[in-house]
Design a protein around this nucleic acid. Structure first.
Lengths: 236, 236
DNA sequence: CGCTGAGTTGACAAGATTCAAGGGCCGTGG
DNA sequence: CCACGGCCCTTGAATCTTGTCAACTCAGCG
């Protein structure tokens, strides 16, 4: 009766969303068991390539992705784009910029994206609720902080593996199928996340395909026998 | 009359410390203009190689480095050590682990380190102070989160450059001399931060030395004409 | 039906790692 | 005081990995 939903098509349930604790605290949703209580401002959506927010814009709101995927990108001085992270339904965006109050990267939709938008949180009052929200923020933020540099360490093979495993695990944590991935982003965008080249990503995926570690077919990747590579350089 | 203090020897003033806002909020220090009011628990110190905290230990306290430097290291499964970050006086440690309540890396002193230790913060009460503290935490954490993957991106040359510039900038922000660096860590530890090899770090430093970009003499490095190599993109 | 853009593949060049050897510094012990 | 060994850093040469450039396939679309 419960078919695992598709990462790139189906919306995430509130109970799997990082924002749900805050939503409940702020009284935006009442219903806990997965059903959406329509929020003030409603469930919004943007089209492929559109920006959830842009670098330089004031950062006051929080966003929770409900369906589709987002890439966060920084444009370096020389016009190269570097992908900071990909986000799936259940992820919260906007928190990273709280320290400066200004977004430092663009958040671009890879395909159609539905999301919830939270009005600015007021942490300034004396309510118990305010403190509880702050604590939750510190937690969410701390979790996110401890991640990302895995993707730019080690060999190209290890990076691609880490990328796939990370995506798979996160999908599973949100109630999606972690074996059957869709990858709505281009090879170039993957390469920009992993700090390597498009040809290298392609070669690694094909190599892993030949070795039956994954099954690659365009943007569709099935994880078969994917061992997290410790740190490999030379093979005898 | 004001001689800029030495990064690896002199203590940082409270006014340059990230923790000072919190110290003031919690009433631990009263004096704002750089003088230390002895804190409850006092100014502690550890010897070279000793741990400020270790992976797996419960994370409740905050630490502010007053003098000396700290490396944070993760031991990977295969026994390799990977350096997560270096910290200078004025930096706050311990916050990264707030989400899990358990430290995920070791914090090791590179030389003698003096530090302040803050007892567990209680964010649970309803006071205005509590909310203010939480806001400060979110800010400090957010700033720290936006950094680290610069060091593992791009060519080896770019990484070494980024490493030196980052250290220099942070030193300056704390009131130290940003041109004359001491580097109490070994080449191996630098290499482990930059995800490269000790020989590569050595070669890059010597190359930059020959080009008069820096002046290298063992652990002493003077920045002369260090251009940030393409794709700077420092996130504010 | 040919254009276009994304993905793949091959050949070669550039860059990084590996292996090996040597130099300098420092503490220990003769 | 000097000799010695250990450790860290540097340097060179061979090798491997990744980047670069170019060609080709394939699917979508006019």
């Amino acid at each position: 009766m419960e078919n695992t939903p598709c990462l790139t098509a189906d919306p995430v349930a509130c109970r799997h969303c990082d924002l749900s604790a805050i939503c409940r605290l702020t009284g935006l949703i009442v219903d806990e068991d997965g059903n959406t209580r329509r929020m003030p401002g409603g469930l919004r959506s943007i089209r492929p390539g559109a920006a959830l927010y842009s670098a330089g814009a004031p950062a006051t709101n929080l966003f929770a992705i409900r369906s589709g995927m987002i890439k966060r990108v920084e444009l370096s001085a020389d016009g190269e784009e570097r992908v900071v992270s990909f986000h799936i339904p259940g992820d919260v965006l906007g928190l990273e910029a709280f320290s400066t109050g200004v977004h430092n990267c663009d958040a671009i939709a890879l395909g159609r994206v539905q999301y919830c938008e939270l009005p600015p949180l007021r942490l300034t009052d004396e309510s118990q609720r305010s403190a509880a929200i702050a604590r939750t923020l510190v937690q969410v933020l701390g979790t996110a902080a401890n991640v990302q540099s895995t993707f730019t360490r080690g060999s190209a093979r290890r990076r691609v593996t880490a990328f796939l495993l990370d995506l798979s695990q996160r999908a599973r944590a949100r109630g999606f199928n972690g074996e059957e991935l869709h990858l709505p982003m281009s090879r170039l965008e993957i390469a920009n996340l992993l700090d390597t080249r498009i040809e290298t990503v392609s070669r690694m995926l094909q190599q892993m395909h030949r070795e039956r570690a994954v099954h690659v077919s365009g943007s569709r990747v099935r994880l078969l026998n994917l061992e997290p590579q410790a740190e490999l350089a030379s093979s005898a």
